[in-house]
């Protein structure tokens, strides 16, 4: 009726789902490219085409 390897493999899945939920709820700060760096990148691209 029960199979230890099956139980372990599924516990791993439950743990993984738990980690995903925890990661989703965990507050993080994502660094976004600033407008200045975008402008600089555009200028670089323009000077390349010239």
């Amino acid at each position: 009726m029960s199979d230890i390897s099956d139980t372990i493999m599924n516990i791993e899945i439950f743990a993984f789902i738990g980690i995903l939920i925890w990661l989703y709820l965990k507050p993080v700060s994502i660094e976004r490219p600033s407008a200045d760096s975008e402008k600089a990148e555009e200028d670089r691209a323009e000077s390349k085409t010239e």
């Binding site: 993984f16 995903l20 990661l23």
Partner: peptide
């Protein structure tokens, strides 16, 4: 597993 992790990254971003 990797795709699900990437989905979490996308949803957070």
């Amino acid at each position: 597993f990797i795709v699900l992790l990437l989905v979490v990254c996308l949803l957070k971003a």
